[in-house]
């Protein structure tokens, strides 16, 4: 669900720190019909122009706090990503992305549930790698976007 609307189309920008471009960021929404407990947020499958950027180089910004790694989010048991709020996904990439249109393949992974499942114990030990459809909620297909880097 919300297949075509999970990334805000004019949100792709490079991230500059101390005068150096260190990566890029984009505005993302929840691929479900309810807000999410932040601890369950397990990262993104994000492939830009053929290159996959794994969860380890991603950070997530929400609720007015500085961007946090997905390891840090794991302990946010009672913090909520409200349903209609946009979060910002940061991806580390030296030099950032070139200006112009990029092909972004995208899937969110949030380990929410409707109850106990056979995968529970395994996902505690080894959380699924985003992109497999595991934890992809109501949008289990990888969605492809064409998005222009604006600054």
């Amino acid at each position: 669900m919300f297949d075509n609307f999970l990334i805000r189309k004019d949100s792709l920008k490079n991230v500059v720190e101390d005068g150096k471009v260190v990566g890029f960021k984009l505005g993302v929404r929840i691929a479900d019909y309810r807000g999410q407990i932040l601890s369950l947020h397990n990262g993104y499958y994000i492939k830009v122009d053929g290159v996959v950027y794994p969860r380890e180089v991603q950070k997530f910004e929400i609720n007015g706090k500085p961007p946090r790694t997905f390891e840090e989010l794991k302990t946010c048991y009672y913090e909520h990503w409200n349903y209609d709020d946009e979060g910002t996904l940061y991806v580390e990439k030296e030099g950032g992305l070139e200006p112009g249109v990029h092909i972004i393949e995208f899937q969110q992974s949030i380990l929410n549930a409707y109850g106990y499942r056979p995968t529970d114990e395994e996902w505690v030990k080894n959380p699924p790698v985003p992109g497999s459809g595991a934890g992809a909620g109501k949008t289990s297909n990888i969605v492809t976007y064409e998005i222009e880097l604006t600054e």
Binding site: S39, L111, N112, G115
Partner: peptide
């Protein structure tokens, strides 16, 4: 009932 809410156990 998000049974993985605490992430380090079910």
């Amino acid at each position: 009932m998000d049974v993985l809410q605490f992430r380090d156990h079910v």
